Structure formats: C-alpha cells, structure tokens
Amino acid sequence: MVPLGRSVAGRPISAVELGNPRAGRRVLVVGCVHGDEPAGTAVADALAAGPGPAHADLWVVRSLNPDGMAAGTRGNAHGVDLNRNFPAGWRRIDAPGSVHYSGAKPLSEPESVYAARLVRRVRPTVGIWFHQHLAAVDGSEGPKEVERRFAADVGLPLRALTDHPGSATGWENTVARDSAFVVELPAGRLSPEAVRRYTEAVRRITGP
C-alpha cells in the first residue's frame, strides 16, 4: 500500500503497486473518479488482491474520490468535478453547486494533486480510468490497439466520446503520450462474472 494523501474530508487515498517495479510496461488503473460512479472499485479491488503481473509494474487506485463515494455525489467534498480539474485544456466550468464545477483553478483539489503526482511518478504506458454509465470504451484518445483489444475482451463497443476540458485522461496523455483512456461501465454494480471479465482484460494488458 502506497499512501497518496487524504481527501478534503480527511479520508485516506492510496495506491497498490504490484508486479515488477523495473518493468518497462507500467499500467495505472483508477477505479473511481466520480463518487456516484463507483462500479470500477470492484475491478480495482480484484486487481489489488493479486496476483501481480510478472512483466509489468501495475498501480491500482481504488478511488480518487472517497468523499464523493461516501456521499453518493459526482464531485468531491468541495463539490468539484475532479474530471474537470486537471491542467490540460482546463477552463472554468460553471459555478460552485454545479455538478460539473471545475474548481477555481487547475489542481485546486488535493485529490487531483495526488493523481497528478502519481502519474508523474509512474509515467504509465497504459492508464485505465473507470467511469459510468455509458457502457463503452472511449476511443477518442490514448493507445488505439489497447483500446480495441480491451473493448473486445470485455464486450463493450469502442466509441469516440467527448473529450472534456480538464479531464484526467487528457492531462495524463500530455505527460505520458497516448497512454490513457476511459472505460465507461454500464449503470449499476458489476456482477461477479463481469468483475472477472474486466480484471482479466486488464491482466492481459500487463502480460508479455
């Protein structure tokens, strides 16, 4: 367990590192960014339970937004949409109280800062950020062949979704070029079978 910091309300945020720290393939998985889209945490939990990959350095963040998860809200405890709070393309969106409020400035939120530090530390070759509820793999940015294979493995369509200003994946792709993409899970909880399917799809990315 690697502590990253604490949320606005003081909840711990951490990462789990598995596999081979010296591997050239570095994979980052973030289970939850919006607190009302928590299904990816089940995949993150399954990955964190191991086994670690032999040929990759795998980093797993269960939730970047534990306060939002506890409250069932999209934003963090400041009401900021963390997926509009990163530097790449950031612009002020809406006002406090809006579900898409971008914050007062890029990286104004501690949770975004922790994620940015981790991305700079790991420099992922692949970054998978789970969201809901569009049931698609976003092919608008990131590693195209990995996206196609992941979509086929999990049985979701590959679609070019909207690139939002200040998004985590958009910013990661400026730090680690063409590494990050979004997986939009279906609404609701994932079944145990679905958790296994998504977990195995990630593990195939970490394979030789």
Score class of each variant (00 low, 15 high):
A23K: 07
G50T: 14
V43M: 08
A42N: 05
P38C: 08
G35N: 05
E37D: 00
G31H: 01
A49Y: 11
C32G: 03
H34D: 01
G35T: 13
V43K: 13
G24H: 04
A42S: 15
V33N: 04
C32S: 11
V27E: 10
A48F: 03
A54F: 07
G31T: 08
V27D: 09
V30T: 12
R26G: 09
A42W: 03
P51Y: 09
A42M: 09
R22P: 00
T41W: 04
A44V: 08
C32M: 08
A44E: 04
V27Y: 10
C32I: 02
H34P: 05
H34Q: 07
R25L: 12
C32K: 01
A39G: 05
A44D: 03
G35Q: 07
D36H: 06
A39E: 01
A23D: 09
A54S: 14
P53Q: 11
G52Y: 06
G50A: 13
V30R: 02
A39T: 03
V33P: 00
H34K: 04
V27H: 08
A44T: 06
A49R: 15
R26I: 02
V30H: 00
A54L: 14
L28I: 15
L28G: 11
A23C: 12
V33Y: 01
E37S: 02
A39P: 02
P53H: 07
G31D: 04
V29A: 09
L28P: 13
A48N: 09
P51Q: 11
G50C: 04
L28K: 15
P53D: 09
A54T: 14
L28T: 15
G35Y: 01
G24S: 11
V29C: 02
L47H: 12
G31P: 05
E37C: 03
T41R: 15
H34N: 10
V30N: 00
R25K: 15
G31S: 06
V29G: 12
G50N: 10
A54P: 11
A48S: 13
V30P: 00
A23R: 06
L28E: 12
V27W: 07
L28Y: 12
P51W: 05
C32Q: 06
D36S: 02
G52H: 06
G52Q: 06
R22F: 01
G50V: 13
A46T: 13
V27R: 11
A49K: 09
L47S: 13
A23S: 15
E37M: 02
E37Q: 07
C32N: 14
V30Y: 00
G50S: 13
E37I: 00
R25M: 06
G52K: 12
G24F: 03
A48Y: 03
P51S: 12
G24T: 09
P53V: 14
T41G: 09
G31M: 00
V43I: 15
D36E: 09
A46Q: 08
V30S: 04
A46W: 02
P51G: 14
A49L: 05
R22M: 05
R25E: 07
A39R: 01
E37R: 00
V33R: 01
P51C: 13
A49F: 04
G50K: 15
V33K: 01
H34A: 03
A44P: 05
G52V: 03
P38V: 13
A54W: 09
